[in-house]
Design a protein around this nucleic acid. Structure first.
Lengths: 339, 339
DNA sequence: TTGAAAGCGCTACCAC
DNA sequence: GTGGTAGCGCTTTCAA
């Protein structure tokens, strides 16, 4: 009966019932008022009382209860991924999230560090997202099936190769490689190396970029030499030496950072850039302009953040109106002085 | 009565009741089996039947229903923030998430682009997170109150100044500035500029870093000149000119990227680095080693990702055992050739 | 214009 | 060992 001052038993979280009690109305009325339900007309006096009571109590609706009742969520799940550094991706990401929010979705990033693909898919499915947009490549056909079974209307993967069952596939990074290769061929280079990052997780981008180079070069008799490269200066020095040994006259690096790394190693070894070996990057990172020579690069056009969001919305609303596979990436070369 | 083949009315999402029906047991039993409830003993035969049924149906539990029933969640909310590029923060972030997951929490990043602080806090509160770890500086005392009212056991802000009501405050970026200033003083520099980024959002880090410089320099008679800098080459050229005009002999830049930008501008203007003006960065980005001269920098020790996670856990379990304010950041200088 | 009540999927108490 | 069932907070018919 007596209070226990040691554990001041935090006050319970206010519910809509508490609001109703305080305002002297029913829970139904509270719901109508707070959701501005159009189908029912509530007197202004009541409205004010309810709003006031909600404010006084610091009432915030319980999302889980709401979506349980509704039978569906407006959650778009974005499995956490390490967005490549750089303003482009950042802007893309911002636009994407912002547009989805405009469209009434709740964007949730969900980390799944240390789970395998199917395990992760189950964890995601527990949240009953209406859509999943996966940038990581870990989604399998099984994972997609689990998500669909859990009510996901749209499962979208961003990659080069379609995942069976996933509703749409977009953003083909091969285009980046194609642009780079076209640019290098046009400038007369005929022995091309392609730097591939050693870091795990990046092969999702680098693989397709290499494929794009190969496609474009095919038939021209130009050899393409893959150059795996760890992000260290020692490794870069070895790769620089290899460029000379293989008589490469141009190198396309996975991105601008790797390009910078290799360019530095080449220059330290006394190799002229672009005189002896041209270097080209990708992603148009800010640092490219600061290098000497200024780095030629491939820029991804990212007005697509909004378009991707709209695509998600459409996939949710009328899944069958979308083609299984859709391209959504534009890339263009930014020629500077390193090629 | 007849089927409508046009809209094949997707099959309903399986519930535990479906599993129970298929396995020929009650919903209670399904729950016991799938949650490995220790307090109750179920025959192996039944266990297998239940598991099999769940598998066959592709059953995944409904997180919202579960937490509604439980009365609480294990969700740690991480308002989306633009993590500064660079492997340090990335590792920090990874460690943090991974450790929390180990401890049984569900880490959810929630974007709140385009909401003001209190609006965002309400949106977060709807998810009834057990803890909120905010890196953005938008959390006000009101926002904290809303979250607490909604059941959040811990609200942790990472910043320099405490937010009233927030349970803990950690990671004081001033330390970065202090280290840089100490290093520059030690090397004999006596007129110090501090580059501040123009990009919005970054002042959360840059402000405290500047303060740290000021603290350390105080009493030595060394002037500290703030140098706002937009990330463009033109702006950098102007700032470089200003360095000469103000007779600065050293500049500490908000981070390595800004340091690179300024260093390039200084060199393009014929100013010797570090001969005439020393340049120091922060965050030890990879590119620092590739510059010539190699960039001196301040490195944040990020073994703290795990520690922060453990702190969150403790704050959730025994909120009153934690001091309101706690420091959790270590930084050390990485001297190279630019100072 | 407002209220009563059912039920979303799940778990945990109590019976059998 | 297993089943019945109440109830978490919310929305939404249906009645009044």
């Amino acid at each position: 009966m007596s209070q226990l001052p040691q554990q001041p038993a935090e006050p319970p979280v206010p519910t809509s019932a508490d609001v109703a009690r305080l305002a002297g109305v029913s829970r139904a009325t509270v719901s109508y008022v707070l959701n501005d339900t159009a189908a029912v007309r509530i007197s202004d006096a009541t409205r004010r009382r309810v709003r006031q009571a909600a404010d006084d109590l610091g009432y915030v609706p319980h999302a889980a209860a709401r979506s349980l009742r509704a039978g569906h969520t407006r959650t778009v799940l974005l499995p956490t991924v390490h967005i490549p550094a750089g303003p482009l991706y950042r802007r893309f990401h911002d636009e994407f999230q912002w547009t989805l929010r405009e469209l009434g979705y709740t964007v949730v990033q969900y980390g799944s560090a240390g789970m395998d693909g199917d395990e992760a898919a189950r964890a995601w499915a527990e949240l009953r997202p209406v859509a999943v947009v996966s940038l990581s490549g870990t989604l399998t056909a099984r994972g997609v099936a689990v998500l669909k079974r859990a009510g996901a209307k749209a499962v979208i993967t961003l990659g080069s190769r379609p995942v069976p069952g996933a509703h749409t596939v977009v953003m083909d990074q091969r285009e980046v490689g194609r642009r780079a290769a076209a640019h290098l061929l046009e400038r007369g280079y005929r022995r091309i190396g392609v730097v591939l990052p050693g870091e795990p997780g990046l092969d999702l981008l680098s693989g397709p970029r290499l494929d794009g180079v190969r496609e474009t070069v095919a038939g021209t008799g130009t050899p393409v030499v893959p150059l795996p490269l760890d992000p260290s200066e020692e490794a870069a020095a070895r790769t620089a030496a290899r460029c000379r040994r293989e008589r490469l006259d141009a190198v396309f690096a996975y991105n601008d950072e790797y390009a910078m790394l290799l360019m530095r190693a080449l220059q330290d070894a006394g190799t002229a850039v672009p005189g002896e070996v041209a270097v080209m990057g990708a992603d148009d990172l800010f640092l490219g302009r600061l290098l000497r020579p200024r780095l030629s690069t491939v820029r991804i056009d990212m007005e697509t953040g909004q378009r991707l969001a709209e695509l998600v919305d459409r996939a949710v609303r009328e899944p069958r109106s979308l083609p299984e596979r859709q391209d959504l990436m534009a890339a263009r070369t930014v020629p500077r002085d390193s090629t």
